[in-house]
Computed example of a mutant assay.
Amino acid sequence: MVDADSLVRLGLVLLGTLVAVVAGALVFVVFPATLTDLLGVLFVLVAALAGARIASNVAGSLVPSHNVAEVAVEGPITRDGGGGGIASPPTSPGADDIVEQIERADDDHGADALLLKLNTPGGQIVPSEDIRLAAESFDGPTVAYATDVCASGGYDIAAGCDELWAREGSIVGSIGVIGSRVNAKELADRVGLSYERLAAGEYKDAGTPLKEFEEDEREYLQGLIDDYYDQFVETVAEGRELDEAEVRETEARVFLGAEANEMGLVDDIGTREDVEGRLQSQLGEPVTVAEFEPQRGLRSKLRGGAQAVAFSLGAGLTSAFQGDVDGLSFRQ
C-alpha cells in the first residue's frame, strides 16, 4: 500500500529529474551547436542523474520516510573510536561521532523518537557521559536496546534514556569503576633500570610503574575512583529511578537480562520487533527506522574498509591454527 507521503516523495523526485533533463537538454544540446549529439546526450544524462539525486535529498528532507532514528554504540567507548588493527576488530565510532549522530537525529525533521542500540562493555568515563547527555537532550522518546552486552559505560548511557530493553541472555550491569597500574619495579631492578623523579607536586607521578607504590598514593588514586563511582551510582539511581543503596548492592556485578529485569535494571525483555512495537505505541503510528551513521569522507571510508578486511583475514588465519577455543568471551 502506497501512502500519501510516498507519493509526494516520488512526485518530487520525478519533477526534479524532469527539470534536470530539460535544463540539461537546453544547456548541452540545443544551444551549443558545436557539440556533438553524443556528447550532448551524455551531458543530459549526467544532469538528469544529478537532478534526481538532489531532488531525492530534498524530498527526503521535506517529506521524511522515517519517524525513528537509530544510533548504535558498539564496542569499547573512547573519545575518538580508533580503527582496530590486524589483531583486533575495527572499533565503533568515537563518542564525539556518536554525539554528532544523536544531535543530527534531534535536528532531523522526521525523527520523532530515538532508538539507541547498545552492544558495549563500557569504556572511558567522560566520553560515556557525553553520549548519555546527548541522549537525555533528545526531544522525543528515547529507548535503549541492549543486544549482547550493556555494561559499565554502556549502562551509564542507558540511564539517560526513557526506557531500557534487553534480551533474556543480554549481559547487563557492571555499575562500577576500575583503575589499575602495572607494577614493574622488580622487573626494572632485574634488568638494571632505575627511576629518577623529575616532577613538581607531590602526587604528579603517583602510580608510575617503575617506583614503589606508596600508601598515600594508593589512597589518593582510590579516592578518585570512589568519587567517580559515587557519581555513577547517583546517575543510575536518578535515571533508572532506583534507590542508591540498591544500585550499590549490585557491587558492580553483571546480570542476565531476565534477572536484570526483575531487579529493575531493565524495563522490559524483548526482541527488536518488540522494541519497535513499543515505539509504535508511543508515537501512535507505524514505525519506520532510519540508521544514522557518522558522516565520513572517502579517505576515512576506505581506511575503515581496509581495516575490516585485514581483521577478517587475521581472524581466519588465527582460527585455522587455534581452533574455536574461545566459545565464551566476557569483557567489561
Rank of each mutant, 00 (worst) to 15 (best):
F43K: 12
L10I: 04
L26W: 01
A23M: 05
V8I: 12
T34P: 08
V8N: 01
V30K: 15
G11W: 03
T36S: 15
L10V: 04
D5V: 04
L26R: 01
L38S: 14
V22N: 00
V30L: 13
G16Q: 02
L10A: 07
T17C: 12
L35I: 00
V13K: 01
V29P: 10
L14V: 13
A23K: 00
G11C: 08
F31R: 12
S6T: 08
G40C: 09
F31T: 10
L15F: 09
V30Y: 02
G11H: 00
S6I: 03
A25P: 01
V21I: 09
F43I: 14
A25M: 08
V2Y: 06
F28Q: 07
L39F: 10
F43P: 10
V30N: 04
L26K: 05
V21R: 05
T34D: 13
V21P: 10
L39V: 15
V8Q: 06
A20M: 11
V22R: 04
F28L: 06
L7H: 05
L42Y: 05
F28A: 15
V41G: 14
R9Q: 03
A25K: 04
G24Q: 01
T17P: 09
L10W: 02
L42T: 12
V2W: 01
L42P: 05
D37F: 06
V19L: 12
V19P: 04
L7A: 11
L18F: 07
A23L: 03
V22T: 02
G40H: 10
L7W: 14
G24C: 09
V8T: 10
D37V: 14
D3P: 08
L12Y: 08
G40N: 06
T36C: 10
A33V: 15
M1A: 13
T34A: 13
L35A: 03
L39Q: 12
V13T: 11
D5E: 00
V22I: 14
A25H: 00
G11Q: 06
V41I: 11
F28T: 08
F43R: 06
A4N: 12
L39M: 03
A4G: 05
L12M: 07
A25Q: 12
P32I: 15
G11A: 08
A23R: 00
V21A: 11
A33I: 05
V19R: 02
V13M: 04
D37T: 12
D5Q: 03
V22W: 03
A25N: 06
G40E: 15
V44H: 09
L12Q: 07
V13Y: 01
V30E: 07
L38G: 15
V30G: 10
D3C: 02
F31K: 05
L12G: 01
F43E: 09
V41W: 12
V13G: 14
L18M: 01
G40D: 13
V44P: 09
V41R: 06
L42G: 15
V27Q: 14
D3Q: 00
V19A: 12
V22M: 02
A33C: 02
L39D: 13
F43Y: 14
D3I: 03
M1E: 05
T36P: 12
L15C: 03
G24W: 00
L12A: 02
L14R: 01
L39C: 04
L15A: 15
V41T: 14
T17D: 11
T36W: 13
L26H: 07
V29G: 04
G16K: 08
L12F: 03
A25G: 13
L38V: 14
L7I: 07
A23G: 11
D37W: 08
G11D: 07
F31H: 15
F31D: 04
